[in-house]
Amino acid sequence: MKEIERAGIAVVHVCTITPISMTVGANRIVPAIAIPYPLGDPKKDAGAEVTLRREIMDKALSALATPVSEQTIFE
């Protein structure tokens, strides 16, 4: 992640345990649902799960479009 950003590419880290993401140095962080299914939820039906994934991805896109000067969690 850091190597990709070091190359000048904007990276958003979508993950569940955001404290680890902060510790390792991600700059744009979007919290996810759960460790085994960060961008889904098997308890939901297929349609609702796709909607949920889109909501998280919408946040990821807006994180990438937002200038940041320090590590930021986009709740």
């Binding site: 990709i4 070091r6 190359a7 000048g8 590419i9 990276v11 960060p38």
Partner: peptide, 16 residues
Amino acid sequence: AEKLLADGVNAVILTS
């Protein structure tokens, strides 16, 4: 990163 740069990628979604 090198491969991404070579293809003009400027945004990465990284999931963990």
